[in-house]
Design a protein around this nucleic acid. Structure first.
Lengths: 209, 209
DNA sequence: GCAAAAGTGTTGTCGGTACACCCATGC
DNA sequence: GCATGGGTGTACCGACAACACTTTTGC
């Protein structure tokens, strides 16, 4: 018979935010051997009564103190050797949170922090591969969905939205084409209000449709 | 502590073929309680040293005697109650085979057979939902990839290719637009040869690019 | 008045869709 | 010669990319 009894199932989370013009990924620093001191994606084992999505939500709450986020299942990684501590497959998820959200620390880890995706430290397990996959999917979804709503305040200017897109996609966009597109496709709606209290010309405030 | 020890991990396969103008799904009839006599997607537990993809390939070989097929991971289904016999999550896969391939029967099941997707019997577990998801993905992939190559002979006429698309998508296509598109996008290449031995005007033979 | 960001139009290209007739062959 | 499927072209439309100047405000 096979070693089914020792098969673990975990969720791993690629949690992104955008701040100061950078796309950042949340990493935790591990205490547990054999990866002590290594950075990794947050995550954990799934429990008896929950789906993988519920496990992901719970991990997010327990380990970082954050709730009410966008969450989506990505892919299941199952290389037998991916966890040096024993057989464990991982159902990878993508999560997005606004940068204002405060992280809570936990004594399960020796550290937690945001890293720009251009400067990730070496990661434990196969987490480098998982993170790369998550970035690819985030960029693809940005083009044809409204996932961006999970990274912005309820109202925002088109300039703010465009800078968000440019940050995630890593390239510059033409403002006239961008504005025409997001309005034509019905992604955003004009609230009629203006962004006040800043220097320079005030901008209209929009919200997601 | 949680019930991690009893967590099973399975793969389930949505195996499609096209024959006589119908898109068909391979189902097996279960012996095992509590689903005795019910039809279900083929699949099985994953073993110690293999990835989920390797498990899917092995199941395909063991249970239906088919090898060398297109295989793709779809999604992981994890509702705690999805298997009445005990906790088990399922990593769903999509597979495509040519209709000429012969199936081998196995004594693990009380039956095996192809069903048109428009007339599926009641299915065990959450397999109705999994099959619906697989059909959706297959249709989406057909539009922007060359997955169709896995359902046709190495060479084929554009008429054959168009009928395959119409069968899977469940709608009629305009032959002029279809031909222009598959050639413009570089999906197929003219072999210079002709389909002979049939009635009516001979058609050019193409192959995938 | 100047620095900075907001806001706005036109043109060309390309991909997609709608649509109908003649052609080559086997019987 | 006829039945059958093979093979072809044009015209319209909507989406997208390239491209630069004027407007509004705070200082």
């Amino acid at each position: 018979m096979t070693r089914q009894g020792v098969m673990g199932v975990a969720v791993d989370l690629s949690i992104f935010t955008v701040q100061e013009g950078r796309l950042e990924l949340l990493l935790i620093r591990m205490k547990r051997a054999p990866y002590t001191g290594r950075w990794a994606l947050p995550g954990g084992r799934i429990r008896g009564g929950e789906t993988v999505e519920q496990a992901a939500v719970r991990e997010l709450e327990e380990k970082a103190g954050i709730g009410d986020v966008y969450l989506e299942q990505l892919y299941t990684f199952s290389e037998p050797a991916r966890d040096a501590a024993g057989r464990c497959i991982s159902v990878a998820h993508l999560a997005l949170i606004r940068s204002e959200v405060q992280l809570r620390t936990t004594d399960k880890y020796s550290g937690i922090g945001w890293f720009p995706i251009t400067r990730l430290p070496p990661l434990a397990f196969d987490h480098k591969q998982i993170a790369a996959y998550a970035i690819k999917r985030l960029r693809a979804k940005l083009e044809w969905t409204d996932v961006a709503r999970n990274l912005l305040e309820p109202t925002f200017t088109l300039g703010e939205l465009q800078r968000l897109y440019e940050t995630i996609l890593g390239k510059e966009l033409d403002s006239r084409n961008f504005q025409r597109r997001v309005q034509a496709v019905g992604l955003v709606k004009d609230t009629g209000r203006m962004r006040t209290g800043q220097a320079y010309r005030p901008a209209r405030l929009f919200r997601f449709a």
